[in-house]
Design a protein around this nucleic acid. Structure first.
Lengths: 151, 151
DNA sequence: AATAAATACATGTATATACACTTAAATAAC
DNA sequence: GTTATTTAAGTGTATATACATGTATTTATT
């Protein structure tokens, strides 16, 4: 869908301004698709993100700060997301022996299993919904990184 | 900044998957820039979005549903965002005379004035921070719309 | 005309986000 | 070695998001 239809507006001051809105809208669109698939697994978008980060390091333990640094949307909310993952038995917390200020977290077997089920469902949906060739994706990636150059 | 640095990970299954994460990260990055500028005006990102929508139609009145349809992130939260704009005297609500189910909203003079001040500050910041030429922005827009083709 | 269905907005709840603050532990400064 | 500073995590508050539900009003059905 064209952005003009999506937000029912034709007024864009510049292509750059339109690009900003287009990125925001596309992110919302992607999140909506992902969240819909996650629903049956009782996971939210952000819980899913944290679980993937934990699985990426498994069987290593990760501290809260390291998880935060790897999150797509940097958030001060990591402890509370872990609260919810712990309640669902998808993650486990303990205090670091080396530095008692640190809480170290690991994904559980059950968390890994759930993540595998999610992937099995998510990958084909994602592939069918996102209409980009590998070459176009490469181009998009380089434009987005150009956009954030002055970060 | 490269996505790899931003989320401290090099593991992407495909360029398409990376593009998804890159869009999400860039949206977060953009929101952060905008929110920082809005802070001194006591506005949140979404309140700003609604105010701009109202100004775009001014002096016409808009109903809640029409505002929702024009929002970047479609939300069921429009009534509560209007609550906050009303408290700040940036918007006014009344019941439609034609259809009493409808609440019609208008931006106030003070809302328009604030929006003008925001633009004056936001435009140069946006221009300096987003490193894209018009041509690149055009290309980015068409790739994002290609991405959402199956919407 | 009376009833059923649809529509528009508002509200409740769980989770998430941004930001400020607190507490405990580690490190640095003296 | 004691005090001050920094760091890590957690907590509190206001706002936002997603989803379900409630309430009033309008439109459709009979």
């Amino acid at each position: 869908m064209k952005l003009e239809q999506a937000i029912q507006s034709e007024k864009f001051e510049t292509q750059v301004q339109k690009a900003g809105l287009n990125v925001l809208y596309t992110a919302w669109w992607l999140k909506t698709i992902v969240s819909k698939e996650l629903k049956e697994f009782g996971l939210t978008h952000e819980q899913y993100n944290v679980l993937r980060i934990l699985k990426g390091k498994y069987p290593e333990l990760m501290c809260v700060r390291d998880i935060g640094n790897r999150m797509i949307e940097k958030s001060s909310n990591v402890p509370r997301i872990i609260d919810r993952l712990e309640l669902k038995k998808f993650a486990e917390r303990s205090t670091s022996l080396i530095d008692k200020r640190e809480t170290v977290i690991t994904i559980t077997k059950s968390g890994i299993k759930t993540l595998e089920l999610v992937s099995k469902k998510m990958n084909p949906v994602f592939g069918k919904t996102v209409s980009l060739t590998d070459e176009e994706a490469l181009q998009l990636n380089s434009l987005l990184e150009k956009m954030r150059e002055k970060e």
